[in-house]
Design a protein around this nucleic acid. Structure first.
Lengths: 340, 340
DNA sequence: CCAACTGTTGGTAACGTTGTCATTTGATTG
DNA sequence: CAATCAAATGACAACGTTACCAACAGTTGG
């Protein structure tokens, strides 16, 4: 009745500023201003608009807003993996802070593949995010170029040793590895082994292993052997790798693992095999996951502030325009458990 | 040097279709068509355009496209939490499938708060996502209304017992709990306890507990006691809760936990306390997390296909327009470990 | 009583893309 | 050879919002 001759099956379409404006008897721009809490709005206008908006249950279309503004309330977040326990924690921290500011994360997962990362970054940037969070410090010039073109804040997480594009927040993995080596050496262990997994993706675990090896050599107790499993890191892989490495090198008296999952696997193997931990064998992990604190013998590990890293990354992103680039080296904590 | 007299601070702005069109000597719409692989494009046109596009390293602006199209390649994903281990796995599965289709997840976290969920859903919907994935089956009419207005596919994950908005994929938690009760009862346990955490957020753990209790009563071995910690679920909390519950009810001979973290905590407590598991005390978790398979005594648990659930959710979303609503009840698997 | 404000509202033109029409070109056919 | 048709390309007008002015109503002060 209201619409004469709706021949072409009127699509209801979403309610727009215009609908609200008409119902409220004001201009579209006024509605826009009220919705955005712009300054200099009379109470009467605000009320008229709000009433109309509620009546129509109007929701602003961010897409249009973003197009006009050349920016959005989206933040591109590119992580190498979602199956590694570390990144969900970081993402949790990111989300927590973003949420407080009405921002939202658009997720990209690179699977440690730089080509895929490039693709994902391109796709995410095509959404005009207000900023981007990347993992690690190694990114192709192509990626750097695309980001530079958009001129949006960048924060790189996990690592602080290198040449950041914008801000960065993470822990110093080589320093952590050196701390681990020093600690273990100080505990009197002499014959060290290292266990990693997933063919050691080009990540931070390699940096740790190398620094660990170097330090051990300096200390006069060079690494005896290491075992890098092809499989994805897990406690089971940790058990198997530990068993394999120990049977090949029975003289090893201390194992440093790429992460706590592997280390817990090693601990469980030792328990099953009746190996005296920490007497005959020391075990140390990395990350400080929660469950490692609950085992009968709590796992010695290096605790990294993953959630806080995410929070800080989001904060850096938000403050970058005003405060410029910053590199935040969050301190890790060597947690002495019962396994060393 | 390159730019003479850029008085009004030329903003470089992003390169657009127009720039490519000019360089290639064709119309904008032709560039658009080439970029989208539209049909009926001559090879010569395609080549001209691609050359120009590469030269300018042009990336289409999805925001503009989405505005015009009223839809996007974004998928809104609303999860209750990122700190619970379950959801990252599901998200991983979602991302895996979305990625294959060039889609991206925009994340929303409700923290089990329906008001916050409402806000998040509203914000995400304002991005004209091509679909939305929600957790659980209980959503306010307000949310249902907003989604209906946009007329986009919905998939609800985790649960299948209830009245879905669109498609749904999950496991039947009450059936799983009954299976657990039957199994444990069949193993000869008589005095049952239940341990939960985080004040049992209105989630699926409550459904499991209630079904578990009901079934035990039917079997003639009603629940002796339960302990719901206020703290967030973790292995440590599991240890403490187990200790507390057992000292208050020393006759309990079997514990069913809300999840594997708690259960592992219980197992570790038993190991420390020298309790004979599974002889004097049976322990059973829920979810089937990886680490539970590596413990000296593998944890009996109900394995839920979390990653697959995410994959299936994404698939359902993509196929919904063509195939209509579907409810997919993924089967859980009772994994008998050494703790029962 | 007018000039110069301040505070409030509105009109218009983008933002970059794509659907819906033309329109052009070349090939095919009676 | 004109008529017909399909394939290829282009012009134009949206999509819904907001930046940038312009306009207007009150005040204030000289």
């Amino acid at each position: 009745m209201t619409n004469p001759l709706p021949l072409k099956s009127e699509k209801p379409s979403r309610t727009t500023l215009r609908d609200v404006a008409i119902l409220a008897g004001v201009s579209e721009i006024s509605v826009s201003r009220v919705m955005r809490n712009a300054p200099n709005i009379s109470d009467s206008l605000r009320e008229k608009v709000m009433t109309a908006a509620n009546a129509l249950s109007y929701t602003p279309n961010r897409v249009a807003g973003a197009l006009k503004n050349q920016t959005s309330n989206l933040v591109a977040v590119v992580l190498p993996s979602m199956s590694n326990d570390v990144f969900p924690s970081v993402l949790d921290g990111i989300e927590t802070v973003l949420n407080e500011h009405g921002l939202h994360a658009v997720l990209g997962v690179s699977e440690y593949d730089s080509e895929r990362e490039l693709r994902v970054v391109r796709e995410l940037l095509s959404w005009s995010p207000m900023g981007i969070i990347l993992t690690g410090l190694h990114h192709s010039d192509h990626i750097r170029g695309m980001i530079a073109q958009l001129d949006i804040p960048v924060v790189q997480i996990m690592d602080v040793e290198g040449d950041p594009i914008g801000s960065a927040v993470g822990v110093s993995h080589s320093v952590a590895a050196v701390a681990a080596a020093d600690y273990l050496h100080g505990r009197g262990y002499q014959k060290f082994g290292y266990i990693g997994a997933w063919s050691e993706r080009p990540g931070r675990s390699r940096a740790r292993r190398l620094a660990f090896e170097r330090r051990l050599a300096e200390l006069g107790t060079p690494l005896v052997a290491s075992h890098i499993s092809k499989d994805r890191s897990s406690a089971i892989v940790g058990s198997e790798a530990t068993k394999a490495l120990l049977s090949a090198h029975p003289n090893i008296d201390c194992l440093f693992y790429a992460n706590d999952d592997l280390a817990l696997g090693g601990l469980f193997h030792a328990m099953r095999a009746g190996i005296d931990v920490p007497g005959k064998l020391g075990l140390m992990g990395f990350n400080g996951i929660e469950i490692g604190k609950a085992t009968p013998l709590p796992l010695t590990s290096i605790e990294t502030p993953r959630f806080e890293m995410g929070e800080e990354a989001a904060r850096l992103l938000l403050s970058q325009s005003s405060e410029g680039f910053r590199v935040v080296d969050l301190s890790f904590k060597l947690v002495e458990g019962g396994t060393t």
